[in-house]
Amino acid sequence: MKILVPVKRVIDYNVKVRVKADGSGVDLANVKMSMNPFDEIAVEEAIRLKEKGVADEVVAVSIGTKKNQETLRTALAMGADRAILIVAAEDVHDDIEPLAVAKLLKAVVDEERPDLVLAGKQAIDNDMNATGQMLAALLGWPQATFASEVAIEGGRATVTREVDGGLQTIRVGLPAIVTVDLRLNEPRYASLPNIMKAKKKPLEEKTPQDYGVDVSPRLAVTATAEPDVRKAGVMVASVDELISKLKNEAGVL
C-alpha cells in the first residue's frame, strides 16, 4: 500500500509572530521555518505503518516556494521514500489557499494512486483546518479527520477522532483521507545518518502548470492587524486578597 503525506513549511511554532508595520501581512523574512507540527505526526504515522509492513511506500508532497525542499528533506530523513515539490510561489509571503492545495494534491493523487493520504489537521500559520476535507471532497473519498488512533485492516481504516464531546470512532473504506491530531503519536527526530541518506533520496520538482491547476486566490487579504492587547494586571499576595479583588473589584465572584 502507498501513503501520500502532504507537508507544509510554516513559521516555527516557537517563533513570536510579528505583523508587518504596513499591515500587509506577517513578517516571514529571516524567521525560522519548520515542518508544520501536525505534518510531522502524519509523516511519523506513515513511517510506522511502513515499519509494521502495512505500507510499502511513503511519498511526501509539499506546495510552496523552492525552500520547501528543506521540509521535504526532513520528511525523507524521518523515513519517507521520495518527495514531490510543487513550486507554486516565488515568495514565502504568498500562501497557497487550501482549495488550490487540494486541487494540486488531487492531481498528484490521480498520478500516484495512493491508498491513503495522511495530512495534518491544521496548518499552524493560516489555522484553516480545511485541506484534507477539501481533498476528500474533490476525490469523492471518505474522510476521517482529527485522528488520535488509526488502525488499517482489510482495506479499511478504523479511526478514533477527537471531537467536542470526547472521542468518536468511525470506519472508512480505502482509499481515504485521514487528518491527524496531536495525540496520534510522538514524531521521531531524524538521526544524522538518516539526514545524510535523505540527501540522496529522489525529490521531484513540479509546477501547478504541470498539473493544469489554477492557484489564484479566492480570498483577497485586505488587512492584517495585531490583536487587541490586554492591559497589564496586578499581582496579589494571597488567596484572601485574590478573593477580595474578584468580589469587589472585578465583580465576578
Partner: peptide, 13 residues
C-alpha cells in the same frame, strides 16, 4: 491566524 497573533481581514470573490 497564527494562533490569534494576527487578525486578518479577507474579502471573498
Amino acid at each position: 491566524i497564527y494562533a490569534g497573533n494576527a487578525i486578518q481581514t479577507v474579502r471573498s470573490s
